[in-house]
């Protein structure tokens, strides 16, 4: 019991702190790639503390409800992950959170927010099938959806499921809001929708969304690290390598539109995943 509580605490506290740290590192690496120095590594924490202390402007009561739900779902998904629960349950929980965020954006009347929410829903539509195929692939390999079983697995999954891991790369780019798929909202505001889904959230609500995003970041990097779950070091190394690659892609690509995203990610991602699964099944 005590053990479970400690893990719960780690998931709740260390999760977002790690996510914030990843965000800070991301901003420094991005700045260096752009010939700049960049902010200090703890910049995301300052941002969130400041946002939490700002005046609360709520356009619509539903917004607050949706943000609380999003944050709660993201937290729950990470806790379930840390407690080595069922992978399917985790995927459904995080999808629920993502939908709540889009619902919150739809609750306001701003056209930017509305269009951003539609794009967010399209993004969910794009990455969810791939994410579930990743779950199915892990199941076919290990015989269980339980993360505890995956963690016991001796061989790195990435050697057996390399194409599926590539498909997970698409999911990570979309989920972490990186170019070329930062359609609904990007970290910097220079896009046609200003801040997309985030447009009408302000102050503490935006801070909570940011914390939720930290939980999401850690969760998606955690799922990525399952592909080399032979020990903590390879897990961290794989997650870090994947994160670095995504930052690199972010800085070397323009933003594409959602039609192309849907077509390309489904065609390429599903093909990669299915080819991998069929090959494994045949063998």
């Amino acid at each position: 019991m005590n053990h479970a509580l400690i893990i719960l605490g780690i998931g709740l506290v260390a999760g977002p702190l790690l996510g914030g740290l990843a965000g800070g590192l991301d901003r420094i690496v991005t700045a260096r790639l752009q010939a700049r120095t960049g902010p200090p590594v703890w910049q995301p924490y300052y941002d969130v503390i400041k946002l939490m202390a700002k005046e609360l402007v709520v356009v619509n009561g539903w917004q607050a409800f949706c943000v609380y739900s999003y944050l709660f779902a993201s937290m729950l998904a990470l806790i379930l992950f840390v407690m080595q629960s069922d992978l399917l349950l985790i995927l459904f929980t995080q999808a629920l959170g993502a939908v709540f965020l889009a619902m919150g954006a739809l609750a306001s009347t701003s056209p930017y927010s509305q269009v951003g929410a539609h794009r967010e829903l399209l993004q969910i539509l794009t990455y969810e099938p791939l994410l579930f195929l990743v779950g199915v692939g892990i199941f076919l390999e290990t015989g269980s959806f339980k993360i505890s079983v995956v963690m016991q697995w001796k061989d790195p999954l990435i050697l057996k499921l390399p194409l599926l891991f590539a498909a997970l790369g698409y999911v990570m780019i979309i989920k972490l809001r990186k170019s070329p798929f930062d359609l609904a909202a990007s970290h910097h505001a220079h896009q046609e929708l200003v801040r997309g889904v985030f447009t009408d959230f302000s102050g503490p609500l935006l801070g909570m969304i940011e914390i939720g995003h930290w939980y999401d970041t850690v969760l998606i990097l955690g799922i990525c690290s399952l592909f080399w779950a032979t020990g903590p070091v390879p897990m961290a190394a794989l997650a870090a390598a994947a994160y670095a690659t995504i930052i690199l892609i972010d800085n070397a690509a323009a933003r594409l539109n959602w039609r192309w995203m849907l077509g390309h990610v489904w065609a390429m991602g599903l093909a990669l995943a299915l080819v991998n699964l069929i090959c494994r099944h045949q063998g």
Partner: peptide, 12 residues
């Protein structure tokens, strides 16, 4: 951005 200044382009 060294000082954490970001152009957010959104009054909210």
């Amino acid at each position: 951005e060294r000082f954490g200044i970001v152009n957010v382009g959104n009054p909210l």
